[in-house]
Design a binder for these strands. Sequence first.
DNA 1: AGTTAGCACTCGTACACGATGAGTGCTAAC
DNA 2: GTTAGCACTCATCGTGTACGAGTGCTAACT
Lengths: 341, 341
Amino acid sequence: MELSTRKENVLSSIIGAYIQTGEPVGSKGIAAQLGVSSATIRNEMADLTALGLLEQPHTSAGRVPSRAGYRVYLDRLMERKPLSQQDAHWIDARLYAGSYDPEKLLHAASRLLAERSRCLAVATTPSGRRAYVKALQFVQTSRRSAMVIMISSAGTMKSRVFKCDFDLSGEIMRIFFRVINEKLVHKPVADITPAMIQSAAAAMGDMAILMSAPLMAVYEVAQDTMRTDLCLHGQMNLLLYPEFSGGGLRRVMNLLERRAAFADLLHRATGETQVQLGNETECPELENASLVTARYQVSGSDAGTLALIGPLRMNYPAVLADMEYTAQTVGKILTAWMKEE
Amino acid sequence: MELSTRKENVLSSIIGAYIQTGEPVGSKGIAAQLGVSSATIRNEMADLTALGLLEQPHTSAGRVPSRAGYRVYLDRLMERKPLSQQDAHWIDARLYAGSYDPEKLLHAASRLLAERSRCLAVATTPSGRRAYVKALQFVQTSRRSAMVIMISSAGTMKSRVFKCDFDLSGEIMRIFFRVINEKLVHKPVADITPAMIQSAAAAMGDMAILMSAPLMAVYEVAQDTMRTDLCLHGQMNLLLYPEFSGGGLRRVMNLLERRAAFADLLHRATGETQVQLGNETECPELENASLVTARYQVSGSDAGTLALIGPLRMNYPAVLADMEYTAQTVGKILTAWMKEE
DNA sequence: AGTTAGCACTCGTACACGATGAGTGCTAAC
DNA sequence: GTTAGCACTCATCGTGTACGAGTGCTAACT
């Protein structure tokens, strides 16, 4: 499908106007913008409609971009500008403010993306699915309870309190530390299965009775490490768009509650910052929505995803620049935290 | 204001019906219910309207309870039934499921209340504002970073990672532990001010250079301990009610973002499980909403609040029973966790 | 051959009108 | 004090009309 330069300009202008106003755009305004008569534009619009790039809500209305139209715009027409210095600094300021806590960082990222895009922003916390156990620590928190802390190579740090039926002592804590570390440090987190915990306990003979609570806690904390949390912000932003105001928001939120399905959706998006439009997501809940995803990397490998859900008419140049820069920066910060040791 | 028994019955029936349907209720249905003619009911309704307990959206519509009407209903008419055994078990199952983590517990409470009431539920995590420091622990998390964990008498446990410019060792960690514990354990968390941290550092002479990072982390973790987090669930439930579907939800969410204002609102509600209707909250955002609050106690003193925001027409008997039982149970669980040592 | 002016046409929106019906207030009889 | 009856009110819904934004098509123009 080859388009004349002017057709491209017309399409760009229409999409630009529609993104601004959200209303079908007529030939008149575009004519003024491109310096030709409205009749000419109407001819072009008719052609673009025949090509399936534009749609007409009804005979006497202006045109609205179709999904195919947005697709062409995204792939070939739109120019992607990098973020302005100023905006980059603003984002840096927001992201570098927090302390050493991946969850807080991702929440901050999600929140700032929601604010800037006026869409629903999602961030997944770094996944420890393919990470290994970097350190396991034990801390006594009361006479009979203690906390296990697991630090993974993905930069996550999860903790869990467990309780014993006997009084803890420094001696016992040291035993926990030594025995469990011997078994688990430098192993893949994914290897910490119930079966593995079972066999570890069995191998300890009469120590097993002491170790069952901490081992169980270690298992649970490993589960936590592998689970990615979703940081949601800006749900209410979607109410700004008529596309979502009537039940649409509820449907989207239902999708987000089905964590597994949504995680799949995010993992399907590979590599580059990318946009999926409506059907392309193969997700009925996102029929009339646009999903923008960007991966962030920790120490060179994919660790998590940022996503934005909004109406099809997003300000794509701005949104893509924001997403790309934010994902890069998040990755950079997490990688730096990892290296600092 | 004295009401005849029949007027009370009429008011109760109207409120009951309105809570069910959400639509103005006419004299006919009520007449059938009370076994008198609709004309009689109309007379009673006219009186109740004159008393300001009912309202008429327009001349030829049925009646809708006014705020004063709800108030009378809540204070005098409604019978408060305790929760059924079955429901109590269901709630228990949800709350006792989690591990030793106050935040997770409060999230669970908030979530279950939102599910059951189909309203917006809020829970505040236990406040450490009046608590004292029960324990401070230090754990090394990497070569140059460590985590400080503060356990307060309110049952909160907060942690924070800090970084040093020098390599940490077991020896140094023990010094951190000893010095900081000497200064801070058993002190009120609220006493850990920047000034106090300053003077603590100053008093250490040439150790000060070592101690600045952990002291700063202790300060921050004390701030975390005193801050109460809000656990929100069921925001989308409010979209079910026309009262909130048009912008009303956004206004409510704006209120919740102004954390200070909302915290005030919750703290104003004293003692008992209680209901504030619209204006009574003195909060324009809740003009057409109802706010139900219940305190939970840890070791006998108020620690946090559960709240429900929904339309004026809530199923109050059910909601109040849920709130009361949930608050009690949360308190019981947290208190038990505190005692276990 | 591409562009433009002109014009008839389409169709959504806004508004007025009348019919319908739920629900009321009032009065008179029980 | 209660009830039946009746006139009245008013939101809702469907219909009809005027308006206007925007189109597609044709014929003239460059």
